[in-house]
Design a binder for these strands. Sequence first.
DNA 1: TTTTCAGTTCATTTTGAATTGAAATCCCTG
DNA 2: CAGGGATTTCAATTCAAAATGAACTGAAAA
Lengths: 161, 161
Amino acid sequence: MVAFFIEAAEMLGVPKSVAAIYGVCFASPEPLSFADIESRLDISKGSISQGLRVLREVGALRLSEKLPSAVNGAPLSGVDPKRRDYYEPDLHLRNLVTRWLEQRLAKQLAAGKDRLRSIAKSVPAGSNGSAKVLRGRVKTLQAWHDQARSVLPLVKTFLKL
Amino acid sequence: MVAFFIEAAEMLGVPKSVAAIYGVCFASPEPLSFADIESRLDISKGSISQGLRVLREVGALRLSEKLPSAVNGAPLSGVDPKRRDYYEPDLHLRNLVTRWLEQRLAKQLAAGKDRLRSIAKSVPAGSNGSAKVLRGRVKTLQAWHDQARSVLPLVKTFLKL
DNA sequence: TTTTCAGTTCATTTTGAATTGAAATCCCTG
DNA sequence: CAGGGATTTCAATTCAAAATGAACTGAAAA
């Protein structure tokens, strides 16, 4: 399961450790504590702390209010559970993906739009061959860019159904 | 223009140098030689050579058969053009994007499918709370995965119009 | 044939993001 | 409020991907 998330994350440019943390939490029926994660993942405390922060910020994990019940009779080691935070996945992958699209794609597309505008302005106006070619190129870029922007909401809509 | 491509590339996980090379070629009305690229980009020969190879392999650039005509009266420096290769952008951006989707996304999604299947098999069958939760999680994952797979062709279609 | 130039290769270096680990901080509890 | 464990912080380290550049290849020119 962890591997599954790591692979997916790699493709989206999310650090492995973050993916792994989300992975173990997602794969656990009971909320996990910091220590639980540490013991399952062979990752430094520092990374875990940071990873948890990111995941909380993004809304991928949330603090579970109810303490994990001692499932299967296992009495939850000897530690006082009240002193730890327990994390569980916030189960709307949908929202995660949407948010990701929003952040990485939408932002970049917006920036690109401005840049393209200024590029367009700087293209020579002449009617000789070169100028024509260049204007054509810019047009191509703009067309592609517009398409990308119009696909975005489409995808978002689709993922919501 | 180069910056535009570099930004886009960063998001897709393409090396900067490669994006830059494509950028200058895309931005030039005349095909460019190795030396032209070198002079415009402050990038080492090695990187240029490798970048050109990648871009050729991917079909993003092609060798131009016609030598660049001495445009604007500029007599094309003093060098013998016959000894150089000249590159011009080839694939429509559309196709580039499609190909990228095909390679990175489609491949990963296919792999994920198998992995998910084997995950599903390994989930305990019991009817206690934990088992139920776990089965639910796997279901969620599968649903999400299916959605992703169904969005892909949609996007491809859309980008073709 | 020798020379010269265009381009390639690949071992090495650089770079920057991810990770670590140890010190600092927080906060519960006696 | 002191002690101590849980978490955070952040400077230093690691590590993989990317870039470099010197040595090499091969083809054309002299």
